[in-house]
């Protein structure tokens, strides 16, 4: 809180000269979110639209994300300075030798879940045994597979497409879903919550933190101030978005429409509310942007156990607390 306060103060004190007089001195950086525009990235869009990046002396260009534009590749190729990734993706990439560092961990609670229809007789984890389960690719498989091991379930996994139609039509009995996105899409395809059984990975000892901000290790080494400014401004964006959800939604919908994404406002509203639930989980007072070793280790170990990585990247190399280092 003290850190936040001092940050806010400095922000107010430095605002005029930074915001106007030194317009020309803005540092150009680019940012790539890991998916197409939606409330999952509301904080970054809001930080941009509300001028928080400029207040931090940054001229940010937000790149259009999507399935065909994986941030880690863009970062590695130097096409983007900052990007968001799942923690597991970050660990895998780091283990694969991509010199990425996590400079700000935003999502503390895992939104990943398995969803089943009660009508299919699934009420407990054991009921999943022998069923067809839709799973996303690589990074998203770690937790569900750990879940299956935990409950000793033999399932038939089916690659899950970008839609939930296979699940909705009955092609699979269990589907993967993010709480903030696919779960709501299922509801808005006419399924009622009471007709569904949900298994939150976080509730089954598999709470892997998710979205965080990454950059190349060199970027951080050479320009730590730049990294800190970006993380600070992004956090300010998130805080503003949670405090002004309707305004934040207006901003998100602007990006949604520009990208012609087939979604609508109530879905983005749901998503923004859930982002608040997972970025600021109830009962946690962890400062925004922080990654704890206690959260990192189980995720990394699970990845190794599943063979996705061979060696766990050391936590100290993986995460740099650029906010804390500023305080020194």
């Amino acid at each position: 809180m003290t850190r936040l306060l001092s940050f806010s103060l400095s922000l107010f004190l430095l605002l005029p000269p930074l915001g106007f007089a030194q317009e020309a001195d803005l540092k150009k950086v680019s940012f790539i979110p890991q998916w197409q525009p939606q409330s999952q990235f509301a904080g970054y869009y809001v930080a941009y639209e509300k001028g928080f990046y400029r207040q931090h002396n940054l001229d940010v260009r937000i790149l259009r994300g999507g399935p065909d534009r994986p941030p880690s590749e863009l970062l590695a190729q130097g096409k983007a300075d900052f990007g968001t990734r799942l923690l597991t993706t970050g660990i895998i990439k780091r283990a694969q030798g991509v010199k990425l560092v996590n400079i700000g961990q935003l999502v503390q609670r895992s939104a990943l879940m398995l969803v089943a229809k009660k009508a299919g007789g699934i009420n407990t984890p054991q009921d999943i045994n022998g069923k067809k389960v839709g799973l996303w690719g690589g990074d998203f498989q770690g937790q569900p597979r750990a879940f299956f091991q935990k409950y000793q379930l033999a399932v038939k996994t089916i690659p899950q497409s970008a839609t939930l139609n296979l699940f909705l039509r009955g092609g699979v009995e269990v589907a993967s879903a993010m709480w903030y996105n696919e779960y709501h899409l299922i509801l808005n395809a006419g399924m009622n919550p009471e007709e569904l059984t949900t298994f939150f990975m976080a509730d089954h000892g598999l709470n892997f933190p998710e979205d965080g901000i990454y950059c190349l290790e060199d970027t951080y080494k050479n320009r730590p101030e730049l990294c800190r400014s970006f993380v600070q401004a992004s956090i300010a964006g998130w805080q503003y978005a949670f405090a002004h959800p309707e305004e934040a939604l207006d901003i998100v919908m602007k990006y949604v429409n520009a990208a012609n994404v087939a979604t609508e406002r109530v879905h983005q509203k749901w998503m923004l509310a859930r982002m608040q639930d997972i970025i600021l989980p109830s009962g946690s007072n962890l400062p925004m942007g922080t990654l704890q070793a206690e959260a990192y280790d189980p995720a990394a170990q699970e990845l190794r156990k599943n063979g996705l990585i061979k060696k766990i990247p050391p936590f100290a190399e993986f995460f740099v607390n650029c906010l804390a280092s500023h305080e020194k």
Partner: peptide, 17 residues
């Protein structure tokens, strides 16, 4: 490899159903 049609709805759903 960049267009694995096996995972599309038009392929997967009739396959599974």
């Amino acid at each position: 490899d960049s267009y694995r049609y096996f995972g599309t709805d038009w392929y997967q759903i009739p396959q599974e159903l």
